[in-house]
């Protein structure tokens, strides 16, 4: 066998699984999703925007959509706000063994199923739960209060469940910030807020982008957390998709919803990458 033929054979061996995987499980299914979404229910062959016009005609649909997007942005922002000081502490303040242990402790809860984590919050927040009991016991509340099944509970759960995907890229990127840059800025007259603004945050931008993109995407597409913590009326858009697919068996409408969610998610990811000057590869690889 010639060298060239051997090289082509090697390429073919490695290329085939990748092409099969991406074509059969990613590209074609999403094309199918788009095609089904522009077909009226039951009307094979015909093309119609009916599924999309129904989305805009029914306030409950697009309200849920907008609400999901807004809450996802809020959850992403809160996650960033809570995670940043912790990531900074692990990367820049903690030293030696403490640093490694703290980082491991951040990862630990996220190896457990999301279901278990959400279940923990249910036990904490419900009327007969720990938090309510604690507040009654300390006298801050006269009687137990239901803290589950509201927007705040959803938000708490989403932020909690996304934390890892923010902390890891932030720690990675902050770890790569040379201490001497901070010292130099300080030596030249910088103060903590100005150094944070001009040195630390610009340096951490790739990690902030990577974390925010992933957290936003996961939050937007989350079904489990809103369903359990928000109860029957969580009004999360994935719930609408679930209802169309599994309960009403209206796959055409469900596809349209799914496609809209995909567009929103991709658009925000794209804008996020653009604003921070990142590529998808650089954002994904900081994880």
């Amino acid at each position: 066998m010639s060298v060239r033929a051997q090289r082509l054979l090697g390429l073919a061996v490695f290329l085939t699984p990748a092409l099969l995987w991406l074509l059969l499980l990613i590209v074609l299914p999403h094309v199918d999703l788009l095609l089904l979404s522009i077909r009226p229910k039951g009307g094979a062959g015909a093309v119609s925007p009916a599924n999309y016009t129904r989305f805009f005609a029914e306030p409950i649909y697009w309200n849920t959509f907008a609400r999901t997007a807004a809450y996802s942005i809020l959850a992403t922002f809160l996650t960033l706000l809570i995670a940043f000081p912790v990531a900074y502490y692990i990367a820049k303040v903690a030293r030696g063994r403490a640093k490694g242990i703290m980082f491991l402790l951040c990862l630990l809860p996220f190896w457990v199923s999301e279901l278990v984590r959400v279940y923990g919050w249910m036990i904490l927040l419900r009327e007969s739960g720990i938090l309510s009991g604690l507040l009654v016991w300390t006298g801050l509340l006269p009687r137990p209060v239901e803290m589950l099944y509201n927007d705040l509970a959803i938000l708490i759960g989403l932020v909690y469940t996304s934390m890892l995907f923010m902390v890891v890229p932030l720690v990675t990127v902050l770890d790569s910030l040379d201490d001497s840059l901070i010292e130099a800025a300080y030596d030249l007259g910088g103060t903590a807020p100005s150094i944070l603004r001009e040195i630390v945050i610009p340096h951490a931008m790739p990690g902030i982008a990577a974390g925010s993109i992933v957290v936003f995407m996961l939050t937007l597409g989350n079904y489990l957390t809103p369903a359990l913590l928000g109860g029957k009326e969580s009004l999360w858009f994935t719930e609408q998709i679930y209802n169309q697919f599994i309960i009403r068996f209206n796959w055409e409408q469900g596809s349209a919803f799914g496609f809209l969610l995909l567009i929103l998610s991709s658009a925000i990811v794209w804008v996020g990458l653009r604003l921070t000057g990142q590529t998808l590869a650089s954002a994904v690889q900081t994880r």
Partner: peptide, 19 residues
């Protein structure tokens, strides 16, 4: 503190701000 001292330091690897 260092930011109030009338001396400045040139770091070993210079610590120029890449951003």
């Amino acid at each position: 503190p260092p930011n109030r001292r009338p001396v400045n330091l040139i770091f070993q690897h210079l610590a120029l701000f890449p951003m």
